[in-house]
Design a protein around this nucleic acid. Structure first.
Lengths: 232, 232
DNA sequence: TTGATTATTATGTGCAGACATATACCCTGC
DNA sequence: GCAGGGTATATGTCTGCACATAATAATCAA
């Protein structure tokens, strides 16, 4: 008997986890069914269910009706990234956050932006260029296109006071989106970032949708010192 | 009454989510307690609990005993990244995965590696240099240090056949770790990647621990075409 | 006013039982 | 041998109830 007393779902989860680690339950193998585990721990099946569900969500178990519960062979662990909210990130490091709106214009979405947002037709967009500062030094240079049909309210927003991302997060919730990172020479962003056009910078591209309606596409160039951190 | 019939926890979750979106439950405000919601939907409190717990885990609600359930002001949405397992990533794109072990040596951990792994003293490490290929073309160049005290078994592993990451994932599970991304010139990795030393490349640094024992530190240089993708 | 104690309350967790649902597996008929 | 259908089974979910726990709010004492 593993849990002599007070089998909480966490303690069951931890025990099962240990057994996965020490190969009592080997990779790829089935583990006992919920009812049996419940008997072993002297608890209700619901409690075991809670424990196993948690491990499955964490990516260590594969559960299927009738088939049973199997230990994942190569635990595809997920890293979670708290989506960079520039201001927070800067302030969390104890630096003063600053923001400057460099350009603002309205016009049709360029070809590459339309492709990113899966826009079949040319649409009016609000184009924004902004620079985000940490302790006065350039930290991130952003170019952003916002689809006016989806978010008409942004036309009236005071984006010199609130940065576009924060405005959108508050006023235009999204249902899904995507991000991509790659490295490229600073190029046109060099001037704003105060580096050489050939210096490597980290570029983040990001799109969001509200159901099928495209909201925004942003292309953010980070200063060289920036490191994107994720926890495992 | 929102759910006239068959209130599953998912349908309750979705309904609550809609109310958060349309500001029926405004940001920062308390939402009704579980018992009231259960009454509204005509279901048991446990079902509501399941729904709200899910939304809390997804980062939309803040729940505290006695205090109640509150809508998060700035939904710090989490992006999840399935930790790059090179082989999978390459094969998922329909390309042939290849791997070559370029160097293998044993010796004390260099200063910067020790810092990364929070190693107070000099320790013996296995140093590995490897190149990962996609359809024969260089895709990622990796330098890795493995702490032999924590993972002695790797000394006997055939790392020409299995890549170090896959071996470690299977044989040396970790409890926690971290990843960082930044951009830098290819430098010494240029030769292996077949690019110019000044070309920008995406660098991933990664460390893992088993409880307090450091396992490995890896520094991976990705080919220029590589893009790190995350879903929101 | 301040600090400690107690009551109240919303969420967290547990149990037993029931039914729902997906699906692996066997059995049948061709 | 193979396709199709039926069945057994393991997980998924819900209910109604109970008690645990955390934390606010109220009360009381110094």
């Amino acid at each position: 008997m593993a849990g002599d007393r007070a089998a909480s779902w966490q303690s069951i989860r931890d025990t099962i986890m240990l057994r996965i680690r020490d190969r009592t339950y080997p990779p790829g193998e089935l583990i006992p069914n919920e009812a049996d585990i419940a008997t072993e721990f002297g608890c209700a099946r619901a409690t075991v269910n809670r424990a196993l569900r948690d491990l499955a969500e964490a990516g260590f178990l594969d559960r299927r009706r009738k088939a049973g519960t199997r230990v994942i062979e190569a635990p595809q662990r997920k890293a979670t990234l708290d989506i960079p909210q520039i201001r927070r990130e800067v302030e969390a490091r104890g630096q003063a956050y600053g923001y400057r709106l460099l350009a603002r214009a309205t016009g049709p979405a360029p070809e590459d932006v339309r492709a990113r947002l899966r826009l079949p037709e040319v649409e009016e967009t609000l184009y924004l260029e902004s620079l985000h500062l940490a302790d006065g030094a350039p930290h991130m240079f952003e170019r952003r296109w916002v689809v006016l049909r989806t978010v008409p309210a942004i036309a009236a927003a005071d984006l010199a006071a609130v940065n576009p991302n924060e405005w959108l997060v508050r006023e235009a919730p999204y249902t899904h989106g995507g991000m991509e990172f790659h490295a490229e020479p600073a190029g046109a962003a060099a001037a704003a970032l105060g580096c050489s056009p050939t210096d490597p910078v980290l570029v983040m591209e990001r799109q969001t949708w509200l159901h099928e309606a495209p909201i925004t596409y942003a292309r953010e160039h980070f200063a060289q010192s920036y490191r994107l951190c994720l926890g495992l």
